[in-house]
Simulated scan of single mutants.
Amino acid sequence: MDDIDVTQIPEPGLVVLDVTAHDEATAHAVIAVLEQTWATSGITPVQRVPGVPGVRARVHADIRRPVTPPDPLNSPYGAGA
């Protein structure tokens, strides 16, 4: 992973998270949970380094901007979906 620099976190509330997981599916699952809480960039391509266990990925998030939960009454799948 490249080093994090000041342009990626220019103000409070912005974070860069490096995720190390056993496999690609686990890394994607972790990022999916983060995306339900904060505004994120989405996952970067997952990297595997030969000889190093697991995979790595990075996500940028703005923890000042919580994700708005969907309105179940206006859901295209019906109330309570």
Rank of each mutant, 00 (worst) to 15 (best):
D2E: 13
D3Y: 07
I4C: 11
V6I: 14
V6N: 05
V6F: 12
T7C: 00
T7A: 02
Q8N: 05
I9N: 00
I9C: 08
P10R: 08
P12I: 05
L14Y: 11
V15N: 11
V16M: 13
L17Y: 10
D18Y: 03
D18Q: 07
D18F: 01
T20P: 00
A21R: 14
A21K: 11
H22I: 03
H22Q: 07
H22R: 12
H22M: 00
H22F: 01
D23I: 07
D23P: 07
E24N: 09
A25Q: 11
A25G: 10
T26N: 07
T26Y: 06
A27P: 00
A27R: 00
H28G: 01
A29Y: 06
A29V: 09
I31D: 04
A32S: 12
V33G: 03
V33F: 01
Q36K: 12
Q36H: 09
Q36T: 12
A39K: 00
A39L: 15
S41K: 02
S41T: 14
I43F: 00
T44L: 02
T44V: 04
P45T: 14
V46S: 05
Q47Y: 10
Q47N: 08
R48Q: 15
V49Y: 10
P50K: 10
P50N: 14
G51V: 03
V52Y: 06
V52W: 01
V52S: 09
P53L: 02
V55G: 07
R56M: 08
A57P: 06
A57D: 03
A57K: 02
V59E: 00
D62Y: 04
R64P: 12
P66A: 07
V67E: 11
V67T: 15
T68Q: 15
T68L: 14
P69A: 11
P70A: 14
P70E: 13
D71Q: 07
L73I: 06
N74Y: 11
N74M: 07
Y77W: 12
G78R: 10
G78M: 09
A79K: 05
A79F: 13
G80F: 12
G80K: 04
A81Q: 00
